[in-house]
Design a protein around this nucleic acid. Sequence first.
DNA 1: GCCAACGTTGGC
DNA 2: GCCAACGTTGGC
Length: 138
Amino acid sequence: MTYWLFKSEVSTWSWDQQVAKGDTGEEWDGVRNYQARNHMRTMKVGDLGFFYHSQKEKEIVGIVEVIAESHQDSTTDDERWDCVDIKAVRALPNPVTLAMCKEDPRLTEMVLVNNTRLSVQPVADAEWKIILELAGDA
DNA sequence: GCCAACGTTGGC
DNA sequence: GCCAACGTTGGC
């Protein structure tokens, strides 16, 4: 089991839209960054990830699950780009903001804190637990 | 709205 | 294959 973090701007694809898709889920398309794509290629069905709202909110709002491994991104014919499908699992009781992550001394190594621009990133097991704790998700 | 960081493109 | 120029992302 590996943990991930998916970043999206609310106006592009929001948590509410993801929830509305239910168990059917949705492909995480539109990624045009090799690092992010490579992370998606290593994902397995059943892996969990955080759903993060960038720009205005800057907070982790929910948990998603990978339901299909990497396949061609339907928004492009370019074979270089593929993506996974994810579905919403549950919202966090309390969103965890970027500021909270930056303040927590245990999260200083987190990719979210150090490489703000990477849209799909791995989350360490310890970091996953800490964030669930901060979110009040027992 | 600005700017820093980073990734990509294209000329050489 | 290097590197400068440019575009985009995202925090502030």
